[in-house]
Simulated assay, not measured.
Amino acid sequence: MNEENLVYLQNNLKYLGFGEQLNAALKESITNAPQDFNLQSPTIEMQDPAKRYEPGFGDKVSYVLNFSKSKETDMYFFNSYEATLKKADITDLISQTFYINKGKGVTAKESFNLLSGRAVNKDVVLKSGEKANLWLKLDFAEKIDGKYAMKNFGEKYGFDLSATIDRFMIADLEKPGFKDQLMKSLQRGNVHEVSFSKDGRETKGFVAANPQYKTLDFYDAGMKSVYSKAVDQKQVAGEAVIQEPEVVIEAKKGRGR
């Protein structure tokens, strides 16, 4: 067995958010030297931000990780994984395959966020070889080769997360480090707990990035959607408050994270 290759793959799993719980199974599989194999992760219950569900009744996600052996050497490669989501309020399972390139790709938590209908910001390498920063979002209305199509929104699309956050009356943005933490969380596709102003009153809730419509998605403390146009926006001296255009957005299935 190639010990260096094993350590490399274990580091891949850790970096991609699968932790160390599959390390023993990975070592055993490589020792047996099959041409390819897969590893099944335990089912993970995701934390409910609004704590509406008792333990055991929240969203659950599981993963099947796919490995193959080089045809020329004894090295193995982590090629892809299939993530499957069972939402607390929906009976159907939602699955998608995510590909890994040299140990990099969509992380386990990011795959959960994508399957939950949110967008994730990633640095990617295009087929042309160029590097790009893109917002990725699954299109549940279209499938290609049995997998959901992946929408992407690049810099030219015009979504500026930092500027968008600054438009809204979100509490604590002036505190050192708060905005940076918020941005990193939203870029990973999370819903983040914040306090924001609505109709002149501060309310506690959650927020997620919505690059497709160049805005933020707001939720109340119970994860019920709050229209972003109803959230108070900052008045810039000498300028009118920017009002968002009316858009038709498909009703979200389930709830966010």
Rank of each mutant, 00 (worst) to 15 (best):
V120G: 07
N121F: 15
K60L: 04
P49N: 09
D36F: 12
V124A: 08
K104R: 11
F37M: 06
R118W: 00
L115H: 01
N101M: 05
Y99H: 09
Q96I: 07
Y81F: 15
K71Q: 12
S70H: 04
A141E: 14
L65W: 00
I100E: 01
A83N: 02
K109F: 13
A119E: 01
D59K: 02
R118D: 09
G58D: 09
T91K: 14
K51S: 11
S68W: 04
Y81P: 06
K102W: 03
D36R: 14
Y53S: 07
N101F: 07
M46G: 01
L85E: 04
V106L: 03
W135F: 09
N79V: 09
V124Y: 06
K71V: 10
K143D: 02
P42H: 08
L114F: 10
G56Q: 06
G103L: 06
S62D: 13
K137E: 11
P42V: 09
E142K: 14
Q40F: 12
N133G: 10
G56Y: 08
K127Y: 11
D36G: 13
N121R: 13
T84W: 01
V120M: 08
N101Y: 08
Q96C: 03
K122Y: 02
V64I: 11
S128N: 14
F140S: 04
V125L: 05
E82Q: 15
L136D: 06
S41R: 04
L136M: 14
S70I: 07
K87W: 00
Q96T: 04
E82I: 15
T91S: 13
E45L: 09
R118E: 01
N101T: 09
S70F: 01
D74L: 10
E45A: 09
V125I: 14
D36I: 02
W135C: 01
L134R: 02
A119I: 01
E72F: 14
Q96Y: 05
